[in-house]
Design a protein around this nucleic acid. Structure first.
Lengths: 223, 223, 223, 223
DNA sequence: TATGAATGAGGATTCATTCAT
DNA sequence: AATGAATGAATCCTCATTCAT
């Protein structure tokens, strides 16, 4: 993700050119994310990845060790990039709805910029069993926990209600995150939908609720 | 020889027992849904499916033709079953929120009862490219369209608002359906969560909105 | 061959209709000859043959025993039919060149009428190893021997030369028969070539020779 | 073909020995020609070919791509070798009968040296349907066209006959080529028959004709 | 650092053939 | 006399992975 999705040919160098390990590794991971994201874990072949990266297969194995390790590495890199993007969009201390808005905007912006990375995390990693599913689950739980906090905080801001029972709030956070994920997929598949629109829709939906919307009081983005 | 326990796994019959084609075909589809749902399309092997069905591989090919056809058949069967379940839960003339509630309850009930079928539809079919993704997409669009109608209808019921612009409602329906899908996965993965609880959470979230919840006015299921 | 090559569907009866063994067996052989002739021994499947014959596979096995036996039976039937056709065209006792002409005409007529049977004998049986190649070889040797006799007889007729050395005549007969076989294939593949034309060409070539042809003395068919 | 047909074990190297791609590819093609020639396209298994070549199956696929491609490659290589051998035997400016004699001698010599290659071209490729039959057909038509020219040229040499009608000469060329093919098969199957004898027989048969032979004027090879 | 050469293992698919009725 | 149900045994092909240089 770091950098855009690799295009048809390795960005950095012609095949055979020597270069520092870190850079080569990044090229390979770029190729791997693109391939895994488009084809899926099983359908992606190490041959295709190596070719897209512009290196020979043995080099991929030398650096990344195995297909499984390579996929795990992709998941971790993309998860970190996503969390980083969202975290970077938020200003701690602001009102909860501002933070949620900012986080969603950053989220939709990032998933639109890195569709292959998002596919790896959301579609591929979660459907390929145990070593991998757990890796995304960890990241996802982090995010759900953060959203849970935001909702609780919002309730406190609204009328000092000290704590909504955690058992009621967590499922709401699940629903919100799930809706965000679905909208990210939908936005990537629907030409012309911007990150801002997706975020607005979701804020409307989750913050104001349908009922409020119907009463002519839609939530609207700040500024 | 009826006493021998030949079968390793087969649910419906011991290996080798003759039976009419329709029944055998159902057994095979059951095995296929279970296998595809757990392992994914690529990782599932026809060997495993045949063994689980309690038949030899050639019979699977004789009846279902190819792995691709078999997967498609699974998708279609499970999609039809899901739509049927939801449709059966709804009473057409009722108020929109009643219909949504009933539909969600039926949805979460069905996905809880058929986790493998749900996995096939939600996780596997959508991540394995063109022949398959389109098949679920069709069903999903139907559902999104139906939810879109419900939301518009609700708005009309609420205060005669003639029509919310379609371009605003459709994304909300996307979000709602996406949230439902995520909650179905979450409910299946979280022991102790009932379909009723999941449906209530989602009604709360979508119908009343978080804001209302914070003001102490949670939506609550009928009866 | 007896009867024309079977068309798309079994000529004699609808599937399932009971009928005497001999007739069923003929239907099956017709289907087998058509299938073997078009697809080749290995590529022809018992399934296809049974379907074309309008019967179930077990019945084919009941009557014809195995694929190998079925193919052998086809070879024998078609070989007999071909020899019969040629023999029937010849009037023993006539001058050798008349006999050769009549035999060739019968041969080209038959191969044009039964292209599948001819394919079985010429193309398929000879390329599929020992049980089969020998069966055609026997028939072919018969024919070569007959042609050898004709040539020797012609020489005697021409100038009383009692016997050309057998070692010189046999290869000539081989060449003549080989040329006839090639012309049969060529005639079947070239629209508009009649059996009569093929036979004339070959008589010209073998009887008169190219040299004579060049001297303006082509051999011409009787009457 | 290059070199003699491989015997029981790979001619060039022991299994496992590393070697440049071109050489390995040649070994594989040798093995493939031998196997296809003896067993036929369908009956030959990639396993057998790989084993005979002394390599693993994946390597065959890596280099030659598929069974179909491998067979096509064999056909092309053997066709080129055969044409090359015949062309190499002929001296362009010579009288037509000299050229035919030289060409036939080269042809029978080559088919005797490479029986498997000849089998691939004559027996196997022509009986296995469209991708393959066409490839030999092209080569065969070239040869027939050349022979057609030779016959026409001979007529001109003989008595200035401007041109025999093409429609009469082409079938004669077909017959001549067909006879040559059959004699090649016969010579390979009959111990003790030399290429020279086969060529002499065919020259006798085609050039002088049976009639001349009977009048005690057999054609005889030069020198 | 980097690669051309090579393979063990497994998966989809087909086919001749038999059994029970 | 005839068939629907069923399978053991290949066969083509792919892929992750390693070796020798």
């Amino acid at each position: 993700m770091q950098g855009t999705d690799a295009g048809k040919k390795a960005a950095g160098g012609r095949r055979g050119k020597r270069m520092p390990r870190a850079e080569r590794e990044r090229q390979m991971m770029d190729a791997a994310v693109a391939t895994f994201g488009r084809r899926g874990y099983r359908a992606a072949s190490m041959d295709e990845i190596a070719e897209l990266a512009g290196v020979s297969k043995p080099l991929v194995y030398l650096y990344l060790n195995s297909k499984e390790d390579l996929f795990s590495a992709c998941i971790r890199r993309e998860a970190a990039a996503l969390v980083e993007a969202v975290r970077g969009g938020i200003t701690p201390g602001e009102p909860a709805d501002q933070q949620l808005w900012a986080g969603l905007l950053a989220f939709f912006t990032h998933t639109a910029e890195c569709p292959d990375g998002w596919s790896v995390l959301h579609s591929q990693a979660r459907t390929h069993g145990e070593p991998f599913a757990r890796e995304v689950a960890v990241m996802r739980e982090e995010i759900v926990a953060f959203v849970t906090l935001l909702i609780a905080e919002a309730a406190r801001e609204a009328h000092g209600n000290p704590t909504l029972p955690e058992g009621e709030v967590a499922p709401l956070a699940e629903a919100l995150v799930g809706a965000a994920e679905a909208l990210a997929v939908w936005a990537n598949a629907t030409p012309g939908v911007t990150a801002r629109e997706a975020a607005t829709t979701l804020m409307n939906f989750s913050w104001a609720g349908l009922a409020n919307l119907m009463q002519g009081k839609p939530w609207s983005p700040p500024k």
